[in-house]
Simulated assay, not measured.
Amino acid sequence: MTERPLQLPSKQAQLSSKLVRDLREKAIEFVLFLAALSSVGVTFAIIGILIEESFLFFQKVSIVEFLTSTTWSPLIADADGKFNYGILPLISGTLVTTAVALLLAVPLGTIAAIYLSEFAKPRVREVVKPALELLAGIPTVVYGYFAFLFVTPLLQKVYPDLPGFNMLSAGLVIGVMIIPYVSSLSEDAMRAVPVHLREGSYAMGATRLQTALRVVLPAAISGISAAYILGISRAVGETMVVAIAAGGQPNLTWNPTEPAQTITAYIVAVSLGDLPYGSLEYETIFAAGLTLVLMTLVFNIGGHFLRKRYREIY
């Protein structure tokens, strides 16, 4: 029995196979490009709508009054029969609740990230990290009622004069809510630090804590700062917690123990379909929304430059 000679594919078959493979890769590349382009397109569409509607608002209200006036009452006239369109009370409420949230979330989230990355055993990490990230899956309305019905009465035992609606309890609960964002991303950034940096630190006689704080943490500061910026953006945009627990009265104050209204709380309070389209009251929603987007954009730009600077240093 004679063996049949091995037949190699013809040159035409090779070219056809290569053409099919190239076309398939081009199609996959095009689909991925459309996916990336769609997210950018949605972002620009949102910003475009906000700018268009806000432009109609600023044709009727001075931008100087909008940015400098200390009274916000676009729906109810004051004693003089005048409607006021100063956004500062909403900005102050947003910044105060965000600051309270960060004062809780940043240290606790960073400590949790250091523990999970440098000290926790693999089996412990497999249990603790998913349990911590589970906090991000709880509906925000549940957090809101938790702040109003549990945290506020608890704080009133320490501060008897604390009102039922206040920014302190809302900010603390928002801080608990964003801990998973800070801890998870920070822990991922710390675990991405090369092992040889840790080994070099141990070889110099440093302890695990010294290595974590003086070697791993500075080396991962770029990713950690990104986690902080994400936490800030999440806190600034929170709606239901502040709408339920912080109160619905615009109040220009920097005292977290007082009630106030945030930008998101105002938007959710008035965008219920009761305002006629095209009215000045309706357009205030978009002006407030544009202000919120610009605030978030400023935080993200600041975080970008911060990450860039630390990349150059480390």
Rank of each mutant, 00 (worst) to 15 (best):
P163R: 13
K121Q: 12
Q156H: 12
F119Y: 15
Q156W: 08
V158H: 05
K157I: 00
I111A: 14
T110F: 03
I138Q: 02
P107C: 07
G144V: 09
E126Q: 12
F119S: 07
Y115M: 03
E133M: 09
T97M: 04
I111G: 04
P160I: 05
E126Y: 00
E118V: 03
L154F: 15
G109P: 10
L154I: 13
K157R: 15
P163N: 11
K121R: 15
F146N: 11
L162V: 05
V128D: 01
S117I: 03
L102P: 01
A99Q: 01
L108A: 08
F146R: 12
A113Y: 09
T152P: 06
K157P: 00
Q156N: 11
A136N: 03
L149K: 11
V151R: 14
I114V: 13
L103K: 06
L149N: 14
V127G: 07
E126I: 00
T98C: 06
A136R: 07
P130H: 14
T97S: 09
Q156F: 09
I138C: 07
G164M: 12
A99N: 01
A112K: 11
L108V: 09
I138K: 08
F148E: 00
I111R: 12
K121Y: 04
T97F: 01
A101D: 02
R123Y: 11
A131I: 09
T140W: 02
V127I: 15
K121P: 00
V124M: 13
R123W: 13
Y145H: 07
Y143L: 05
A112M: 14
T98F: 02
L135G: 13
G164Q: 14
E126F: 02
L135P: 07
A101P: 02
T94R: 08
A113R: 11
L95Q: 06
E126C: 00
Q156E: 07
P139T: 08
R123N: 10
P107T: 04
F119I: 08
L102D: 00
F119P: 10
D161E: 08
I138G: 03
S117H: 08
L95I: 15
